[in-house]
Computed example of a mutant assay.
Amino acid sequence: MRDPVLMSRRLLLKSAAGAVLATACRTANPSAPKRPRQIGYLSTGPRLPADHPAYVAFRDGMRAESFVEDTNYEMTYRYCEGDPDRAVPLAVDLVYAGAEVLVVTSTGATQAARVVTPNVPIVMIASHDPIDAGVIKELVKPGENVTGQSLAGATLMPKQLDYLLQLAPVRRLGYLSPTFPTYAQAYPSVTDAFERSMRAAGKPLGIEVISPKVPKTGDVGQALATLAAESVDALFVIESPTWFTGAVSQKPINQIVDFATRRRLPLIGAQRMYAADQGFLLTYGDVRSAVDMHRSVARYVARILRGERPGDLAVDVPKFWELVVNAKTASAIGLDVPQPVIAEAALVIH
């Protein structure tokens, strides 16, 4: 089998010659109309409509920086739609299309884009932990061509487990994360990095982490069967666009929530939307929503388009965290939420 990364690099090198020639032609004809700046958007998740709140927020953020879509910048979108193996070819496609900046939605998408190009600036909307993922050197001065926003997910896991233990005794924790490809030897497996962080958080608390393999497609059927056989006490789900692909009845997120509800298992995660919209018992994480992060990432894009180097722009990390408790879910699975937890919650859903 041919190496898809190597093939993508060869395609990119061939396309680069055409891009240089096109640039030379435009330079030779100064009377030609000035082309809007080109921005590529790479998502590992499902295709979203143009009026999705996150995209509206990005356009608002760009407008605040004096960039107006279809006037002085244009967007080209590419979606993996649940298949992370498509990330590298799609990144090649965006670079070939002339993207001057790549906006990427996840850690896996960041690695894929970095494999394709060491030169085109890459801006992360939300990376779980970009240092562990090998795409930046440090937060303050990331270096090379990557910057953006980090969720700092690994640092939150001990506190997430602490809240869980206040709600229920847990000795065996089910842990679900999609399987992401290892895009190049230089980059560690995102899946393995997430799992190591959770095991490290659980060990001092006496929690054994049960982490069945989830196929890259996000098909959770076999993984849930394994967790049932292992008699786990609770379930932690890493945030990922992969969970939201497919038809409504087949979306992995719906299967996961149904599994936890039927077995009366506490289900926890990091982002507010999982408790507020999906019925998780508890989430603890960054106060910024996907909409917020799309709006704020626009400033990085604008600064780069004005000539700043991505490697000189500090990666933004969470400054405020929030606890969200779904009391309705707690009641459904027969749990009483202690008053101290209620008192700390930024939002309690009844």
Rank of each mutant, 00 (worst) to 15 (best):
V5H: 10
L6P: 01
M7S: 13
M7N: 11
R9N: 10
R10V: 12
R10H: 12
L11I: 12
S15R: 14
A17I: 14
A17K: 14
G18R: 14
A19S: 15
V20M: 12
V20W: 14
L21K: 14
T23P: 01
T23L: 13
A24S: 13
T27D: 14
P30R: 09
P30F: 10
S31N: 11
S31W: 14
P33T: 04
R35H: 08
R35N: 00
R37I: 00
R37M: 04
I39D: 02
I39A: 06
Y41K: 00
Y41T: 09
L42W: 00
L42G: 01
S43Q: 08
T44S: 11
G45E: 05
R47W: 00
P49N: 08
A50R: 10
D51Q: 10
D51V: 04
H52T: 03
H52G: 06
A54Q: 11
Y55F: 12
V56Q: 06
V56K: 03
V56H: 07
A57W: 04
F58L: 15
R59A: 11
D60I: 06
E65R: 09
E65Q: 15
S66W: 08
V68Q: 09
V68H: 11
D70T: 05
D70F: 04
Y73T: 07
M75S: 00
M75V: 07
Y77C: 06
Y77H: 08
R78K: 13
Y79P: 01
C80N: 07
G82Y: 02
D83N: 12
P84R: 10
D85S: 13
D85G: 09
R86Y: 01
A87D: 00
V88A: 02
V88Y: 06
P89C: 05
P89T: 02
V92C: 10
V92A: 12
D93E: 13
D93L: 05
L94A: 05
V95T: 12
Y96R: 14
G98M: 07
A99Y: 03
V101A: 08
V101W: 08
L102R: 08
V103H: 13
V104G: 04
T105V: 03
S106L: 11
G108N: 09
